[in-house]
């Protein structure tokens, strides 16, 4: 083909020597990495779906587990996680604004927006730590783990009657004997979960933990690039493509949270 049209624009129709996708090597590799990482998260969320369907009758309702909000008393389901989502969306906006400033070679703009992105990332990680603290710490009332391992909730502060996850209530002498042989549990870890099935806690720690690790490493990467921007490395290089690459990673982290938010907290 090249023989017939010697004036071929290799940027439009691939004639060799130029990326067929008109995208640099580094950016293509970042996309490949993100696709593979998306599979890791999908595997986690889909196996969560497996357990969820499998234990449909006794799966804890996330809305009833995560009800805390800083400085507020009482139950506030969804509010805190909505705030976390807002923070992450906001930091996604500041990131894409940094990329846009980079396209104009506007160093000051890149510095400003990247700084805000890093702040947003740190606030998000901090929020997650706060949520973990409350989940691990649990409620004041706690719950009862029966001798067969089932976790049941107290009916009142008196702790003399309880209710199964499927709604069956046990009171009186029956309850007293079962309470005797059971153990009280508070909060959640990898083996015990006062809100119900321990598997719920395992998935919570693994999925939000894996995502939190991504956010944290995103903050570190952003910081490294931020320092390079300050030093003028990309100004000298003539382009800010590194900002674009960490930007891709950062948006991916936001994208994953969109799915975690839906499948862990909403559904």
């Amino acid at each position: 083909m090249a023989g017939h049209s010697p004036t071929i624009d290799s940027k439009k129709l691939w004639g060799g020597g130029f990326s067929p996708f008109n995208v640099s090597y580094g950016k293509i590799m970042m996309w490949f990495f993100l696709v593979s990482d998306a599979f890791s998260f999908s595997a986690l969320l889909i196996s969560y779906g497996f357990m969820r369907h499998h234990f449909e009758d006794s799966w804890p309702v996330a809305e009833e587990v995560f009800t805390h909000f800083p400085f507020l008393h009482g139950d506030h389901p969804l509010l805190y996680v909505a705030l976390m989502t807002f923070i992450l969306i906001m930091s996604s906006v500041t990131m894409v604004l940094a990329v846009e400033a980079g396209h104009r070679m506007d160093k000051k703009g890149v510095v400003k927006w990247m700084a805000w992105t890093i702040v947003g990332g740190l606030v998000f990680v901090g929020s997650q730590a706060w949520e973990w603290y409350h989940f691990i710490h649990g409620t004041e009332l706690g719950a009862l783990q029966l001798a067969d391992g089932t976790v049941v909730q107290w009916l009142s502060d008196a702790k003399n009657a309880f209710v199964y996850p499927n709604g069956i209530e046990v009171t009186g002498a029956d309850a007293a004997a079962m309470i005797q042989s059971g153990t009280e549990v508070y909060g959640a870890n990898l083996t015990v979960n006062e809100y119900g099935l321990p598997t719920f806690g395992d998935f919570f720690f693994f999925i939000t933990g894996f995502h939190g690790t991504h956010v944290f490493s995103g903050v570190v990467l952003n910081f490294v690039i931020f320092v390079n921007v300050l030093k003028g490395t990309y100004e000298k290089r003539g382009h800010y493509e590194m900002v674009e690459k960490v930007g891709l990673y950062w948006h991916f982290v936001d994208l994953v949270w969109v799915f975690v938010f839906t499948f862990f907290y909403l559904i």
Partner: peptide
Amino acid sequence: DRTAEYVSH
């Protein structure tokens, strides 16, 4: 990797 060739301003 000749990144500069692909960068859009």
